[in-house]
Amino acid sequence: MDLRVEGLSHAYDGMAVLDGIDLDIATGRILCLVGPSGCGKSTLLRIIGGLERPVSGQVMQLGTPPEGCLNPLTYVFQDFALLPWRSVAGNVRLGLEAHGLPEARMAEIVSDVLARTNLSDFAEALPKQLSGGMKQRVAIARALAVNPAVMLLDEPLSALDAQTRELLMEDLVSLWTRAPFTAVYVTHNLAEAVRLGHSIAVLSRRPGRIREIVHIDKPLADRIHMDAELESTQEHLWNLMREEARAADAELLNA
């Protein structure tokens, strides 16, 4: 199932945040959205997933979600959004409970995704016992459990320290390599974008417009830390963004 964003514009209280966005999200690929802070990339992601209604334009689903997909558009949030009163397994189950699956089937799915994300040993742990990286692994496992057609990741690694971020990027790459998934990945971190994106859409500062879409053909599994080719793409992206970022930074908040 592909997604297509058509002529999408959005405004908050008359202030335009997104302007004429057109995007194609292709099955089995990861699309990264980068841009200076406040450019509306998280808003765009919320609109894509149906959590917010755009002022104009629309997001179209092309085709039907694959068989066994419980929740076609599934988010991974920056601050994990785990229920602190549920165990790891309980949090992963949460997404399944809305779909009336038999108990045994749910248990099977939970243990399967926990195994895939190396969380089996922590099934009964509470979120308060987990580090930030582990919490985000749980959130990713929860998203994978509902077998989404498109994963919508909203700055999933931004709350984590650099080392943990590196480890989780490797995890995401190996998860994708084993079973390719479709994803829209919002980040302000260009290193993440060049490591995980098959294509990278660069947004301008507010109101957000698409400046350029950069494609990287190198397979995800072959991209390594400090890769020279990626470095130059990253440099190119940064040149696109520098002025925008500076101007965005100088804007008054809520002006």
């Binding site: 929740n71 988010y75 009163w85 949460l94 809305a98």
Partner: peptide, 28 residues
Amino acid sequence: DRTLIRMGQSFGMGWFAIVRKIVLPGAM
């Protein structure tokens, strides 16, 4: 935490399920 409620909605949970599984325990 409103993000927990958004999360519930993003997983397609119904209104009563969100109140029972997210709002009530969160307000406890």
